[in-house]
């Protein structure tokens, strides 16, 4: 067997890892092990099993795309509380309400599986909820106003502008 590092010398260090019946093997030669700043077992500066094992965890023999997406997943992190998506998927709990925003892209398939649905259709808080209602209305009126302006119907546009101002005042008063 040839060393996986240099591809020249015969491999003399063999490590086999079996996780859930999936076997991963790792073979290198003594020289390459030394080059990495390590030495072989029993020698001075004992080549620690830990070094090799952590090396194995990073080592991906297939170099497959799945590891790339895994990396991406690991990098996904809530900017508010710092919880990573990987931690979330292990714990099954969010760290804060902003996690919903930061993990939004991945959340819908999960929610669909759990609830068969992704959009809330129940109660809306009375106080902050009416704000949501007004905001929705304002957004819609702005679109209509833009249309009037483009068609140079300034009178109608002005009417809508006044209604938008009224709603905005209501939001401030809340």
């Amino acid at each position: 067997m040839i060393c996986q590092e240099c591809g020249n010398r015969p491999a003399t260090l063999h490590f086999t890892k079996i996780v859930n019946g999936e076997k991963t093997e790792f073979h290198i030669c003594e020289a390459c092990a030394r080059e990495r700043g390590d030495s072989i077992p029993g020698a001075v500066n004992g080549f620690s099993i830990h070094n090799l094992l952590s090396g194995l965890l990073d080592f991906d023999p297939s170099g497959s795309a799945s590891s790339a997406s895994l990396k991406q997943q690991q990098a996904l992190r809530c900017e508010e509380c710092g919880l990573t998506y990987t931690q979330f998927s292990k714990l099954g709990r969010f760290g804060c309400s902003s996690c919903y925003r930061h993990f939004a892209d991945r959340l819908d398939p999960l929610l669909k599986r759990v609830h068969g649905n992704t959009v809330h259709s129940g109660k809306i808080p009375r106080r902050t909820g009416s704000q949501i209602q007004y905001k929705r209305e304002i957004e819609q009126l702005r679109g209509e106003m833009q249309g009037h302006i483009e068609r140079e119907e300034f009178e109608s546009a002005a009417e809508l502008r006044d209604r938008i101002r009224e709603l905005e005042r209501k939001i401030v008063d809340l």
Partner: peptide, 26 residues
């Protein structure tokens, strides 16, 4: 709700620690 600000999202409803409670939270 009168006295405190709840974590609420227009699309996802009441936000909870566990995704199995989100929405109505009931």
């Amino acid at each position: 709700e009168d006295e405190t600000d709840y974590a609420f999202d227009e699309k996802k409803g009441y936000l909870t620690s566990c995704p199995t409670n989100v929405g109505t939270g009931i």
